[in-house]
Design a protein around this nucleic acid. Structure first.
Lengths: 191, 191
DNA sequence: GTCAAGTTTCTGTATTTACCGAAACAACCG
DNA sequence: CGGTTGTTTCGGTAAATACAGAAACTTGAC
């Protein structure tokens, strides 16, 4: 068993509520929250007892979290049971969540649009045009995402911090740069 | 009434299904799809009849879409009824959706974390540290988002296209750049 | 004012989804 | 091989959500 401090309890409850909004069910989200807070890996039993969630629900929840790559199994000497440990780096955590959501929400949309545009060949040109526009935009975003996926979290965080500090004036210039942006980027990177 | 071609029907159905995943209810999502495809603004009645959705459901759905800024009312000469028109630019469309989702999903989380970190003052330091890490990361992302919000869609699309074409080699260098990135960016922008 | 056309609010029903608890299943020990 | 401990699958129940249809409300014409 695991005694919850009031603050932990509150965080877990809120996070669980949040989970619903995020497309993760409440129980699973609560488990993730507890594992995130726990300094040591926990057993399925621990989770079940502490959160008052049925043993079976814990099991499926854990499997889901493992599939997403958020939780991994840890073994402890002299204990036959599996202990579960959450990814501890917040950046990595959200990265996984975003990847997951893209796969569930954006990719099917892309697939659907591609099929629709193909099928709309003989159909109203107006309709096809609209679909094509949406497809083009989404494909651009998807590619962009795939690219940033390759950048390690640490670097992204640094870039983020840099951009936070960047004066608004610089940013508004960036805005006006338009076409020249990519080219200039290549140049500074090559130095 | 509005005759649906098979391809339109398919798109609308799929989009509606997608809507559920996206946290938009099916009926509302279908309405949005039809409005997006329609070359002319439609009345609530049109939507109700074409999609076989109750008049009242259409009403609430339309209000929701208007609140999100996705749909606006258009008046047509000699017709007392409101006609509804969807945002037609795909980029703008997704931008609105993203803004909406941030407000519903990220902002409450941020709020919750801030409160938790404050309240955790006297609590276990381990726990507070974890919460603080998550908060820091999210605040960075939120700021980053707010910044890009200010960049017009058109420019973003251009940047996206540029990045797509950028050789992988350039990108991997960018990755290694780390701390220098923001600084370099300022420089090229100032030119 | 009354009537007519249009829109929204509200309440009950239906559908979906999450969750529990029991039973089946699997792994490991002596 | 049993027996013990741990995990998963399955069926039923409870809770949340979406939706329809009726009733209430608004707006504008005459």
């Amino acid at each position: 068993m695991f005694e919850l401090t009031p603050i932990m309890e509150k965080f877990i409850l809120q996070w669980g509520e949040m989970g619903s909004t995020w497309g993760i069910n409440r129980a699973t989200a609560q488990m993730a929250a507890l594992l995130y807070l726990s300094p040591t890996p926990l057993t399925a039993e621990d989770l079940s007892e502490t959160l008052a969630i049925a043993r079976s629900t814990v099991s499926t929840g854990l499997r889901e979290l493992q599939n997403w790559g958020l939780v991994k199994i840890v073994h402890i000497l002299g204990d036959r049971r599996d202990h579960f440990e959450m990814i501890s780096d917040a950046g990595e955590l959200f990265r996984v969540i975003v990847r997951q959501r893209k796969a569930r929400e954006v990719d099917p949309l892309l697939y659907m649009l591609r099929r629709s545009v193909d099928a709309a060949g003989e159909d109203n040109a107006q309709v096809r045009e609209r679909l094509q526009e949406m497809l083009d935009f989404l494909e651009m975003v998807a590619t962009l995402y795939d690219r940033t996926e390759q950048i390690p979290t640490k670097t992204l965080v640094r870039i983020g911090q840099q951009m936070e500090q960047m004066p608004v004036e610089t940013l508004s210039r960036l805005v006006q740069l338009g076409d020249g942006f990519g080219e200039s980027l290549s140049k500074i990177v090559k130095r």
